[in-house]
Design a protein around this nucleic acid. Sequence first.
DNA 1: ACCTGTGAATAGTTTCACAGCT
DNA 2: AGCTGTGAAACTATTCACAGGT
Lengths: 212, 212
Amino acid sequence: MSEKRGLPEASIARLCMLYTLLGDLVEQGQARVSSSELGRILDIAPHSIRKDISLLGEVGNVGSGYDTTRLRAHIRDRLHLERPRNACVVGLGKLGTAILGFERFRESGITMVAGFDSNINRLETIRTSIEVFPAYEIAEIVQRKKIVLGVIAVPPLAAQEAADRLMRGGVRGIVNFSPAPIRHNPEKVFVTTMDVEREFAILSARIAFNNE
Amino acid sequence: MSEKRGLPEASIARLCMLYTLLGDLVEQGQARVSSSELGRILDIAPHSIRKDISLLGEVGNVGSGYDTTRLRAHIRDRLHLERPRNACVVGLGKLGTAILGFERFRESGITMVAGFDSNINRLETIRTSIEVFPAYEIAEIVQRKKIVLGVIAVPPLAAQEAADRLMRGGVRGIVNFSPAPIRHNPEKVFVTTMDVEREFAILSARIAFNNE
DNA sequence: ACCTGTGAATAGTTTCACAGCT
DNA sequence: AGCTGTGAAACTATTCACAGGT
């Protein structure tokens, strides 16, 4: 295989995990790593890791493990993680302000540039270095600040409206922390729902099936 | 197919989405729903939905759409979501207290029964109706309160220790909000990692591939 | 000896097509 | 007419097995 753009979804997800992990390894000063070591840490079969990496196109090749820095750079380039992306959070309750304050984003080209809430009083009391705005300005600010990624951290009933405003502003990806499904055009916008309740339910079912 | 226990992972996840959605529909007073309507809302092919439902074993059958209440009860039974599960949160920063306070869990047999933090001062200032404990008591309390599910909301470097304590107490499922991979025995414990940074990276890659 | 890279085989998932019910 | 339920087909992803490099 050579110039396929359009990796399998599953591979993209695994490569993103790899990317984060490699960042840690580089930071700890580890220069080389084997597919089996990566697999053990991430609980993924080493075969899959090698396959995923090979799907990226040749890596420059090695005989004994991967060069952590090189592999990381390679994933970043092939997945275009070097492109800077601006992000924002809608809903500045506990969850929203927690996400607004995550520091780790700096590593992956993502910059948190705005927070929104419909409660004006709340906006005034928030302590954060990131600019905050009232919710009715979402579309305008998203457009002006060239925000591509949005987080929805509002109550379920307000989730669709928050999403609509983000999409009107031109956002391309949404991480939805509410349990509400978001109506959207899947050709233009990608939506990922992260719902703790759902994850609990899935875990609960898996536990029940697995044994017990 | 008849008495297969051990549904495909993908089906379990979709059925859990369905379960939540059906709860909303029932609440709104909608008595019947078709696979295509469900599919439209959840952005899943109607074929898949029918297949998933049929994997559960016969539903009692219908000619025109599903009975929302019945279908919901059926999913609950087959996925064993009726079994009560106690849950806890480790790490009571903004994210942790936000999760501790989620009210929605009541619908799915899950009860949040404890919070933990290693900072004793913080424990004293937290306002919540749920009991909180110092982190060194995790294993003991988990065992005593029969906690099966745990959320990890601590900084990355503390995540493994939090997980070890939960697992020592006998937890069977973990939702890990830290970007750190959790070492665990996959035969005994299920771990789901929900990492906003990773989701952003995945969205970023998908956007880059999809067009742009 | 131990590693990567990759075609081939296997396993798993989704989609199709249509029989049968209301 | 419109819906579900489901075997079969098509597709996708994972795992295997081994050639080839260091």
